[in-house]
C-alpha cells in the first residue's frame, strides 16, 4: 500500500533481505499498529510487505502464497482477534505452500482485556506459531521470535516467550 513511511533504521544484510508480511485481518481497521510493526521488522533487517487494514481472507492467503514470506506477522487490536484469527489461520494452513510458514499474531485479541489462556491455546492449536499478549514488549517479543527462527525451525510449544 502507499504511504508507508520511508525508513533508515534497518540495516539490511548483504544478501537480498527476506520478506515478511505484516497484516491485519478482515474486520480490523487499525493501522498505527501495522505502521509500527513494519518499522520494527524492517529494523530487524527484513523487507516488509504491509497489507494494511481490513484484509479479506482471500487477499491475505493469495498474497502470502505469491510472496512466500519468511514470516507472517498478524496484528489485531479491535477485539475480534480470536474470531478473525481462528478463521484466518485455518485458511492459511490449508494453502499448500503456507503449511509451515511461521505465522504469529499479537495485539488486543479480545474485548475484555484479560489474557485468556484457553483462547491462546486454541489459536496455537489451530496453527499459529506464537500468540503475543498485549502486555509483552513487542520489540523484544519479535526479536526473540526471529532469533528462534534463525536458530532452527519454529518448535515453540505453547505461548511464545514475552521477551
Amino acid at each position: 500500500m502507499s504511504g508507508t513511511p520511508d525508513t533508515t533504521g534497518g540495516r539490511a544484510p548483504d544478501h537480498a533481505p527476506r520478506t515478511v508480511v505484516v497484516t491485519s485481518m478482515a474486520s480490523d481497521a487499525h493501522t498505527w499498529n501495522l505502521v509500527f510493526l513494519q518499522l520494527l521488522i524492517e529494523e530487524l533487517g527484513y523487507r516488509v510487505v504491509n497489507l494494511g487494514p481490513c484484509v479479506p481472507d482471500e487477499v491475505l492467503v493469495e498474497e502470502c502464497r505469491d510472496l512466500r514470506p519468511a514470516m507472517v506477522v498478524i496484528s489485531s487490536v479491535n477485539g475480534h482477534g480470536y474470531q478473525d484469527g481462528m478463521r484466518v489461520i485455518r485458511r492459511l494452513r490449508a494453502a499448500d505452500p503456507l503449511a509451515t510458514t511461521p505465522v504469529v499474531v499479537g495485539g488486543k485479541l479480545g474485548v475484555t482485556g484479560d489474557e485468556d489462556s484457553e483462547r491462546v491455546a486454541e489459536l496455537m492449536a489451530a496453527g499459529f506459531d506464537a500468540v503475543f499478549d498485549d502486555g509483552a514488549d513487542p520489540a523484544a517479543a519479535l526479536r526473540g521470535f526471529v532469533h528462534s527462527l534463525q536458530a532452527g525451525p519454529p518448535a515453540l510449544a505453547g505461548r511464545a516467550p514475552a521477551g
Binding site: 478482515a26 474486520s27 481497521a29 479491535n78 477485539g79 475480534h80 474470531q83 478473525d84 478463521r87 475484555t112
Partner: peptide
Amino acid sequence: LDAHTRVGHLQAVERALRDGSDLN
C-alpha cells in the same frame, strides 16, 4: 456498531452470535 457489520461481514456476526463470542 461492531467491526464485522462495518465491513459488511454479516456471516461473521452470525457466527459470533451463535458461538457466544463477544462483539466489539
